[in-house]
Structure formats: structure tokens, C-alpha cells
Amino acid sequence: MALLEVEGLSKSFRGLRAVADVSFTVEEQGIVALIGPNGAGKTTCFNLIAGAMRPDAGTVRLSGADITGLRADRVCDAGIGRTFQLVKPFQDLTVLENVTVGALHKSATVAAAKRDAARFLDLMELSDKLHMHAANLTLPDRKRLEVARALATAPKLLLLDEVMAGLRPTETDRMVAALKRLVAETGLTILLIEHVMRAVMALSHHVIVLHHGEKISEGTPEHVTQDPAVLECYLGEGAI
């Protein structure tokens, strides 16, 4: 049984079909990438899975349990952590406190949560900024903070929405290495939206391509980057 099963997922905004009848599965342990041009419906897809929005149709199952349309906090309880494309730090809390809020999801006490939080911040290379207010962080640091906070909830499945955007190539490589290590060590499964192909190619063993809200291709990174339908949606008709 796959960890995540998405079936016939659809969502329209005032007649605009943002996500149209999308189905895919994510197997346990590993990293799956969700790519597509801007406006393809990737983030909407995430919002539907994570409970930030209710789908018009379709089902979402996690380890076989139906979680369709559950509230965001219930989805988190079920075992899905997420980051936001437009980062949403707790502005007036320090870096440590931000991640502590996430860690409290699994920790019995605040002290234990703080210890867990420090561990995840170390992983995301934010240890030297523990007591800075989130509002004062640079964008790449806020992206890292998002990842650390989501990780702290100890999810089975982590949804990462463009966490590499704005990172320098060396920083991207470090993040890639950290995520790979995490998957190998903890058995975590990651579904990520990413435009940085360098990261997609390095991380994922499976890629799903969305365009105009529909799934147009899926397979290994090598497969999808040679799929004419994918090339066409990125480069335009007649480019190949």
C-alpha cells in the first residue's frame, strides 16, 4: 500500500480549474517531486492534501486512511507536515520558539520540545540564530525555518513547497544533502514542489508533472525530462 494515494482530486476557483482530476501515489520512503510551470496547480494540490482547502472532488488517503477534507491540524495529526511557498513564520517568536511550537506536537513537555527543536535547527543549519526573531531572518533562512518547524512535528510525509527557491547553488546542495540524510536515517517520505531542477534531479526518484491543473506525465527524472509533453509545456509548442 502506498503512503499517499491521491485520486481524482479537483478544485476550481470561480470556474478556473486549478486542479483537475489529478491522481497519483507516493510510495513510502523516498522523495517524489511535483513539478510544472507556474500556475500548474502544484501549491493548490498541496493545500488540498494538507487540509488548508477542501477539494471539490476526489479523495486523499494516507496509509489507507481517508483524510479528504480534514482540517489542517487533523491532517498534521494524521502525519503530514508541510511548508508554505510564501513562508509563514511566527514573526514575534524566536527561531527556537518557532520550531518548539512544531515539536510540541509530539513532545510531552516544553523542555523536551525545545531539545527536539534545537536538533532540527541544527540539521537546517540555523543553530547560530536560535534567539533571533523570525521576522529578522533572511528569506533563505526563513525557508529553512519552515522545513525545521514542519520536521519537528515528526511527520510520516513531508510536503515541501519550493524550499530551495532563493538559495545559492552551494546552499541548495547542502539542503539536498540534509534532506537525503533525513530520508535515509528516519524513513521519512517527502513530496516536494520545486523549480530548481538541480535539486529535483539530485533528490527525487520519481517526478510528477502538472500543467493547467492536469497531470501530463510521471516517471523517473530522466523519463519526464525527455517526455515531449513536458518539454512542450515548458518550452511551448513547436520547440521540439
Binding site: 482540517r71 498534521c76 495529526d77 513564520p89 512544531g102
Partner: peptide
Amino acid sequence: EAAAAVGV
């Protein structure tokens, strides 16, 4: 929204 996403 972010609070809900971490299970609050």
C-alpha cells in the same frame, strides 16, 4: 494558518 499546519 501556520499554527494549524503544525497541528494546533
